[in-house]
Design a protein around this nucleic acid. Structure first.
Lengths: 148, 148
DNA sequence: CAGTAAATCCCATAAAATCCCATAGCATTA
DNA sequence: TAATGCTATGGGATTTTATGGGATTTACTG
């Protein structure tokens, strides 16, 4: 699977549909399931997005863990119960369920944010605030951090 | 992958396209993805350039870390969200997105600067100023630079 | 079952990105 | 010197993309 990179701000139309960025769809082109899996982020006011095959990888990973691990149990319970498979229409749009939109505070615009092997969907303003905060945390924690 | 070396100043045409130096393209010829990944430098007013395979290495590294690792979260948030995969056209040009150009103060000309395993894209004048400044810092500091 | 709301299919369109071809300059070679 | 090939650049033509909206189908509700 190719990576989810960059950020794309798109609009929700009057019917609540929104285009998944073409480059994200390209990252999904080899998938069996023509669509994405969304769930509410545990850590942010945003929506997490995965491919179906990655969802299956996660299921396999939780199987490997202990049956009596309480935290993990909570985690996978949340994840699988909350996950929504959404298939694309002909033009590559999805309809994001209302409770996910509410969780992320999205009304008329949303930004799709690449995260490598996954992606997120944010209210654009909230995302930019979170990015700014992340940058200052990084500068404080590791003033000389380098990539690669 | 062979190294990115030397500097090349090229023009942006009216459509915003610019040729990636042929020698840089040669350094990328063994890559799966025929193009580059650009993002805004965290430390300078310039654009950083990487290969896609380097991005994939980073994505694999983030997978190995815990889901709730804060610092890593910030770092990958910054990088994956900002990274733009740009593929070459037939003649080896790319279109640099407007926000990256703005970050680097590039309008009609840009200089591609080799950095070994990566490269940078600068406004030519800004680059030459930064080079001069770097040179005088080196003359003052005389850092102890060892090979191997 | 009927009536209503919601979802999906289908087509249209403007802007943007990409493809394709052409050319000028330079360097190398016969 | 003429021929060749590659590089950077220019611009017209085509395709893709995001978005809008009417029409049809599906799902829910009382």
């Amino acid at each position: 699977m190719s990576l989810f990179l960059s950020s794309y701000e798109n609009r929700l139309d009057t019917k609540g549909r929104i285009s998944v960025p073409a480059s994200f769809r390209a990252s999904l082109s080899s998938e069996q399931f023509a669509g994405v899996v969304l769930y509410r982020s545990f850590t942010n006011n945003c929506i997490e997005g995965l491919t179906m095959s990655r969802m299956e990888t996660l299921a396999a990973a939780t199987d490997k863990m202990g049956v009596f691990d309480g935290t993990l149990d909570d985690l996978s319970a949340m994840l699988f119960a909350d996950a929504r498979p959404l298939s694309f229409d002909v033009t590559g749009r999805i309809m994001i369920p209302a409770d996910l939109l509410a969780h992320a505070g999205i009304t008329d615009r949303a930004i799709f944010v690449g995260r490598g092997n996954s992606f997120q969907i944010w209210n654009p303003d909230a995302f930019h605030r979170a990015q700014d905060a992340a940058l200052s945390r990084l500068r404080t924690a590791r003033p000389d951090f380098k990539i690669g």
